[in-house]
Amino acid sequence: MAEVDREVVETHETRISIADVPGAIDAGGEMALKIDVSCPSGCNLQGMAIKIVDSQGDEIAEAALSSADEAGGELELSLKAPVEPGEYTWTAFALRQETEDILHEGSSAEFSFTVKHHSISLTVWGISSPIGTGEKLKVTVGGACSANCSLAGLPFTIEDAEGNQVAAGELGQEVLPQTRGVYWRELELDAPGEEGVHNWVVKCDPSALEFPHQARPCEFAFRTTMPPEHTVTVQVFDLYTELPLEDANVMVGLYRGVTDQEGIAILRVAGGKQDLCVSKQGYDFFQTSVDITGDETIKVELPLAALM
């Protein structure tokens, strides 16, 4: 068969569209876009080249339509978002394609998205409040990144209400159990010498992290009191069965404890007149006033609450 020059006999327009563009994406995060190119004549466009270009004209990615549908072809494309936060508009091109006797014209469409900072959420727990003035205050500082970055080794500081730094540290290397990415550090600090409620704040320095992070300081509060001088043993029983009640929450003044298997909570408390409260789910709440003048044992019987 003699070779003849191939002639293009038909020209088809194409139309490109982009779906699943995220409104906002974390810096450096993955964007999964769906690109669809259609031909009004219903041609199979599998293999058609696709190019993604940024606003400067620099190429971001190149790929080909990977599957065909009744009126063209489509592609699921994963792109890495820029590292710098801001507004972005990129353009997707379907490149002109000649096959046998059909010329498919190229087409393009713009799409926009916002790249945002990763945000670090700081939290403080396990605060030993109330704490005797000058005693060791235990706190645990934790942080998590909204994009799940590792925060291992993230430096942080703790400041008092006047802005004086009272402690500094780094988050540990392990992820807190049950979490996807909370890194933490336990600290022992010197409690202030004055009695009262103290509002301190934890701040972190994310500048060394790979992507831009914003971190909001986290306030936490604790209370200092005169060092407790008396031991109060509270024994909690079920009024009817006379059996000890575990897991009852006991408070004498500001001091709290939880009863053990024997129904006993031992609290170190300051002297003086204060409220004794005992509560346990499923039982009636109990409250009375006690005058603590020395070491004491107090027996409390709780009636079953009217559950229904």
């Binding site: 727990w125 605060i127 109330p130 049950q178 509060a221 209370r223 929450n249 509560s279 709440f285």
Partner: peptide
């Protein structure tokens, strides 16, 4: 944050919740 500060204070200044039923919401997750 406000509730946790009431826990430290020992008094719910907003709704006066019984103190022994309070305790901070603080440990992740």
């Amino acid at each position: 944050r406000r509730f946790n500060s009431y826990c430290a204070l020992g008094k719910d200044e907003q709704f006066n919740r019984t103190p022994s039923t309070m305790g901070p919401v603080e440990k992740p997750p």
